[in-house]
């Protein structure tokens, strides 16, 4: 009898796994420890895919863990004097539990391709809105200026403070000067490594104004943890004014004898 109680206790320990697991996922959103607010167009697809997989794996998780619990409860040696079933397997079952996950996973694989293509493959046909150059440990920004072309004299150079117009397609040209970094915008569901020697396009569109974190998500040295930037979305008109003001500031602070300053004056 005593042994039977222990067997039940162990079975219940294993039952606690799905119970507490599900509870954790249920409580987390309630106490606001959950996906950060999404302000992008494509983020909705990613989040719904996340929830879809959460539901799918959740069902598999609960089912398998419950089955395990039930078997432990029922087939405890102390639960009765019987012999274990002598069986080497079942061909039918093997086929069933290969085919069903296969179909599920294949469906998932195909279903998600569109969202991936939207974020990483269907690049909008436009010149870059801004160039982001990562370096230890800051984000260097370069706006093309009035002529809309990067690499000309009226480029605007800034650090860490990325302002962009809301409700517009944005195309970032991502580069790195030294080591790997990763351009992570949690609120826009964007992440892309910056690789030295490569020029990688990143695009998104925000639906809401506001200011959010830019996080470096690839280990880049001792200062990795503090490689922080801000991304701010403002209405177009405000954005234009901001650009003008920043450009004026840049001109004002440019040293007179500076070689590039000379060129700009020409």
């Amino acid at each position: 009898m005593n042994r039977r109680i222990w067997g039940m206790a162990w079975a219940i320990l294993f039952l606690a796994v799905p119970v507490l697991g599900v509870a954790t996922f249920a409580v987390a959103p309630a106490i606001n420890v959950w996906l950060p607010k999404d302000v992008s167009i494509h983020g909705r697809d990613i989040d719904s895919l996340f929830y879809f997989i959460l539901a799918l794996t959740g069902v598999v998780f609960i089912a398998t863990e419950m089955v395990l619990f039930w078997f432990l409860w029922k087939y405890d040696a102390a639960a009765g004097e019987r012999r274990a079933t002598y069986i080497h397997g079942s061909h039918t079952l093997e086929v069933v539990w290969t085919i069903i996950p296969a179909a599920t996973l294949l469906f998932l694989a195909i279903y998600q391709m569109n969202a991936w293509a939207d974020v990483k493959m269907r690049r909008p046909d436009m010149p870059p809105t801004v160039e982001v150059v990562a370096r230890q440990f800051e984000w260097r920004l370069r706006y093309p200026g009035r002529d809309g072309v990067l690499g000309t004299q009226d480029d605007l150079h800034l650090v860490n403070d990325l302002q962009l117009p809301v409700d517009e397609d944005i195309l970032v040209q991502l580069k790195s000067m030294d080591v790997l970094h990763s351009f992570f915008l949690p609120n826009l569901r964007i992440k892309q490594d910056a690789v030295p020697g490569m020029r990688i396009p990143v695009w998104f569109k925000s639906t809401e104004t506001g200011s959010y974190d830019i996080v470096c998500a690839e280990l880049c040295g001792w200062g990795h943890y503090k490689m922080k930037g801000r991304i701010t979305f403002v209405p177009r008109s405000e954005f234009d004014r901001w650009l003008e003001r920043k450009y004026a500031e840049q001109e004002a602070t440019r040293p007179a004898g500076d070689a590039s300053g000379n060129l700009a004056a020409r």
Binding site: V17, G21, L35, D45, I46, L49, F50, I53, L54, L56, T57, V60, F61, T64, E65, L105, L108, Q112, A115, W116, V119, K120, S182, F184, P186, R189, I190, K191, A217, E218
Partner: peptide, 22 residues
């Protein structure tokens, strides 16, 4: 089972955009 199932989230490329390196 838990560890394997969380692998499915990351195998899904769009979801991995958000959870990669987290």
């Amino acid at each position: 089972i838990i560890g394997g199932l969380s692998g499915i989230f990351m195998a899904a490329t769009p979801v991995d955009i958000f959870i990669h390196d987290t």
